[in-house]
Every structure is written in structure tokens, then in C-alpha cells.
Amino acid sequence: MKLARNLLFGTAFSLIAANSALAADDATVKIGDLTWTGAKAIGHVIQAVINGPLDSEAVIVEGLSDGSIIAAGMDKGDGSADVYTDLWMPNRAAIWDKYIDGAKTVGHNEPYKGTQKMYVPSFMADKVSSVDDLKDPEIAAMFDKDGNGKGEYWSGDAGWKSTRMWQVKFKSYGLDELWEPEILPDATFKAQLKTAMQREQPILFYYWTPEWVHAAYDITPLDEPARTEGCENVNLDKEDWLEASSFACASEDASIYVAYSKSLETRNPPVAKFLSQMALDPAVVNEWILKIGRDKMDPRDVAEDWVANNMDVVNSWIE
């Protein structure tokens, strides 16, 4: 009888321990691992707040860098993906429409603003100041790296919707006969930019704010036509996205959000509240990017130091 009671107690204790472990794992916050520096900085700050002042647990899932996969994980609510650190709108309108406005399984904070423009080094601004200048074959020839008769411009990384957006823009501006996109990882492009700036070579490229290249280099954005009704008609998720889209005006300033799975509202309510209240200052984000991207500091160290020294801001996010 005593043996039976001991076995029953042992079984009950094992079930309680197992359930506690499952509950702890269910509360663990999985943060996406987006590739650009701003997203990485924000992700590490989120992790530092959750693991520090909130006394919970968050992990950045290495390699979880596809925005569509992160969004699908947030929608499932199974803990496979909980946080999309840097959701650019309207670039990711398909995610917004499907999961935030549609399924209502994804929440978000108040956004900060970002810009998206095409740039040249300022030492070239007297020759190239607007997209109209790019229609000149002699200008395009200055940017022709491989001698195939077309100038190259960096439109972004292969996984970015903005990479498609700029290809649509160049087509809509009538530039695709003279220009072709270079689709390269951000780190590869930054190495090219550094060389071009040092050697004062022509380079044409997409970039955004906030980012550290604006502090490191003297660069100038190209003028584009003002926005008018109907100037932007894009569907970047269609199979024939390039043919089906048009975009012949300046990009609207982006609204950039932290998005999160609403399943956290039951799995880890303090974290859900924090993510909904997190208010990012673009100037502060740029400071993080400078330290991580230009100065090569460890993102975790940057985040933890900032959180420790800015608890007044952090408390406004979590209280």
C-alpha cells in the first residue's frame, strides 16, 4: 500500500513538473531574426527587456529571417514565432491585411517613421540629382560595372519586398532599358559602398532611415515626382508582380511597427502589454545601429547597456 502511495505521489509530481516545464516553455517569447541592422538592434532590446526587467524569457531564433514565415508563426500562436521586430508598412501590406486586419491574430505598437529613397554619393550630386537624370544614357554608362550597356543600382536583398518595389519604380520611370538591379545582401552592398566612397566611384543605391550609413557617409537622395492619386499601384505578391505593378512617384514615409502574436496575451500577458506599448524613437534606433553596424559592437551588449541606462523609458513601456 505504501509502495502504491509512493508511486502515485511520484507520478503526480512528475506530471506537475512536466506541466510546469510546458508552461514555462509556452511563455518563452520567440523573436524573429530579421537581417538588417535596425531590426537586429530592436530584437536585442526586446530580448533584454523581457529577460531583464520583465523577469521572463525570450530568445532570438537564429535563421528565422523570412518575414512571411514569422508572420505565419505569429498567426498560429503556437510559440514558433512571436515577434516581428521591424514591420515596414506599406511594404508588408500583405502581412498586415492577412493577419492584423484580417485574422486579427497579430497585434502591434505605435509606429516610428522611416524614409525610403534612392541615393548617390554627394560628390556626384552635381551630375545626378533626380530620377530624370537617370534617363540620360551617358549617366547610366557611368554606373555600368560589367560593360553590358546598363548601369547597375542596388535595389536590396533577395528577400525584401522593397527590392521588388524599386524594380517596379525603375520600370515605371522608363529606366529599365538603361538600368538593371543588383540584388545582394546588405553586408555585401555595404562593403561595395565603402569602397566606392573611398575611391570616389559612382554608385547608385536604395537606402532607408534610420541607418548608420547616413552618419558614416555624405550621400544625397534623388528627387522623385511628387505623389499624386493613382501614382502607386503595386501588388508585389502576385506571380507577375513586375508586370502587374506600377509606381511612378516618391515613396510615402514608412510606418514601422513591432508586431507580435496575440497569443502572448494569454501565454505571457506582461510581454504582450510591453510590446503593445513599446514606443521607439528613430534617433535612438539610429544610435543602436551606429554602435552595432559601424562600430561592430555586440548587439546584446548594446541592448543590455541601453536598457540599464534608460530605465525611465523602459518603465514607460512595461508599466
Rank of each mutant, 00 (worst) to 15 (best):
D86G: 01
P137G: 08
N310P: 03
Y207F: 12
G151W: 02
N268C: 07
L8A: 11
I256K: 07
T220N: 08
K273R: 12
A158H: 15
I289L: 05
D25E: 13
L64P: 04
E182R: 08
D25I: 12
K117R: 14
A93T: 04
V285Y: 04
D223E: 15
S276R: 06
G156W: 03
L22K: 04
S261E: 03
I203C: 00
A23V: 15
I31Q: 09
M297C: 03
A125G: 06
Q116T: 01
A254F: 15
K291G: 02
D25A: 13
V284G: 02
I292M: 06
N51M: 09
T35Q: 13
T35N: 11
I16G: 13
P111D: 11
K161I: 10
G174E: 04
K127F: 03
L87H: 00
E110F: 14
A12D: 02
L8C: 12
Y207K: 01
E57Q: 11
M142N: 02
V307A: 02
W179D: 05
M124T: 03
C249P: 11
E182H: 05
Y173V: 03
A191C: 07
A23Q: 14
S68V: 00
V83M: 06
D26T: 09
R199G: 03
I16F: 15
L175W: 06
G10V: 07
V128Y: 05
A125P: 06
K76A: 11
F13V: 13
S56R: 10
D176T: 09
D133S: 08
E287W: 01
I16R: 07
A250Y: 07
W208L: 12
Y257V: 06
P202Q: 09
V213I: 14
D101V: 09
E287C: 04
A248Q: 08
P202S: 09
N148H: 06
W166N: 04
N109F: 10
A279S: 08
K127G: 04
L134W: 00
K117M: 10
L242I: 10
E232L: 00
E182V: 15
L134G: 05
S316Q: 11
G293A: 10
P185D: 09
A248D: 14
L87Q: 05
T188S: 11
W317S: 01
L204R: 04
F143K: 11
K291V: 06
Q198V: 07
S255P: 05
N109Q: 13
G102N: 13
F274T: 02
K145V: 14
D78H: 04
A279Q: 06
K40M: 08
T163N: 09
K161L: 11
A125K: 14
G114P: 02
V302E: 08
M311I: 11
Q47E: 12
I60F: 04
E265M: 14
I70Y: 00
P111G: 14
W154P: 04
L222E: 05
K40E: 06
I292N: 03
D301P: 03
A254K: 10
I31D: 00
Q192V: 00
N310K: 04
S246G: 13
K238V: 12
A21Q: 14
A103V: 10
Q201M: 08
Y153H: 06
G77S: 03
Y99F: 12
H214L: 11
R5A: 14
G43S: 10
V49F: 02
T163K: 07
L134K: 07
R227I: 15
Y206M: 09
G43K: 04
V29I: 12
A71P: 04
K194H: 08
K273F: 08
P269L: 07
E177V: 03
H44T: 14
A215N: 12
A215E: 15
